[in-house]
Simulated scan of single mutants.
Amino acid sequence: MKNWLEGLGAHIATATKNGFPTVIVTYSCQVTDNVVKFPLTEAQVKQIQDNIAQNPWVAIAPGQLGAVRAPYQFKGQGRLEGQNLVVEVSEIYCTKPGPEAARRMDTMGYEKMKAFEESRWKDLEPPK
């Protein structure tokens, strides 16, 4: 999942405290453990800064072909650090169509999640 985000960027969704969404697209990030750091343009910071101040909950989905090949949604608390959005991911969901849609993946543990993925989806390797 790290390779998908770092290799393809992401769609990042934030929302006001009333739930009005804003989505921005980034083309790079750095993933360390459960923390994802996105460099943003000044315009992107302006688009989401009020949302993050009101509601720090952020949803992330892999960008480009990752939207199809890596159907995951990552959720966590976000904060702006200068021109960077830093998100501490605490939940991972499957967004594949079918019975596994919306299944929470991070509660499964690595081995169970790996076995689940291998049994349900055969695909190309993520970019390196």
Score class of each variant (00 low, 15 high):
24 I>V: 04
26 T>W: 10
26 T>A: 08
26 T>G: 00
27 Y>R: 15
27 Y>T: 14
28 S>N: 12
30 Q>A: 14
30 Q>E: 06
30 Q>V: 13
31 V>P: 04
31 V>R: 02
33 D>K: 07
33 D>T: 03
33 D>F: 07
33 D>Q: 11
34 N>E: 09
34 N>C: 02
34 N>S: 02
34 N>Q: 06
34 N>H: 09
35 V>W: 00
35 V>C: 00
36 V>I: 15
36 V>P: 04
37 K>L: 08
38 F>W: 00
38 F>V: 00
39 P>C: 03
39 P>T: 00
40 L>N: 14
40 L>R: 12
41 T>Q: 03
41 T>K: 02
42 E>T: 04
44 Q>C: 01
44 Q>E: 10
45 V>E: 07
45 V>N: 00
46 K>F: 01
47 Q>K: 12
48 I>W: 13
49 Q>T: 09
50 D>L: 12
51 N>F: 00
51 N>A: 04
51 N>L: 00
52 I>Q: 04
54 Q>G: 10
55 N>A: 04
55 N>Y: 03
55 N>F: 14
56 P>D: 12
56 P>I: 05
56 P>L: 06
57 W>R: 14
57 W>F: 15
57 W>L: 11
58 V>R: 01
58 V>S: 08
59 A>G: 15
59 A>Q: 13
59 A>K: 09
59 A>V: 15
60 I>M: 14
60 I>S: 13
61 A>R: 11
61 A>L: 08
62 P>G: 06
62 P>M: 00
63 G>W: 09
63 G>F: 03
64 Q>E: 13
64 Q>N: 14
65 L>A: 07
66 G>H: 03
67 A>E: 10
67 A>N: 02
68 V>Y: 10
72 Y>H: 01
73 Q>H: 14
73 Q>W: 12
75 K>A: 11
76 G>H: 12
78 G>L: 03
78 G>W: 07
79 R>G: 06
80 L>A: 13
80 L>E: 14
81 E>G: 09
84 N>Q: 15
85 L>S: 05
85 L>A: 02
85 L>H: 01
85 L>M: 08
86 V>Y: 05
87 V>I: 11
88 E>A: 03
88 E>T: 02
88 E>H: 13
89 V>S: 09
92 I>Q: 13
93 Y>T: 02
93 Y>P: 04
93 Y>W: 05
94 C>W: 05
94 C>D: 15
95 T>M: 13
96 K>I: 06
96 K>F: 11
96 K>A: 06
97 P>N: 07
98 G>L: 09
98 G>V: 00
99 P>I: 12
99 P>E: 15
100 E>S: 00
100 E>W: 03
100 E>T: 02
101 A>H: 12
101 A>K: 13
102 A>S: 15
105 M>P: 01
108 M>C: 01
108 M>Y: 03
109 G>A: 04
109 G>S: 06
111 E>T: 10
112 K>L: 06
112 K>Y: 14
113 M>G: 09
113 M>H: 06
114 K>I: 07
114 K>L: 14
114 K>Y: 11
114 K>E: 12
115 A>T: 01
115 A>G: 10
116 F>H: 13
116 F>Y: 11
118 E>M: 03
119 S>V: 10
119 S>D: 04
120 R>I: 08
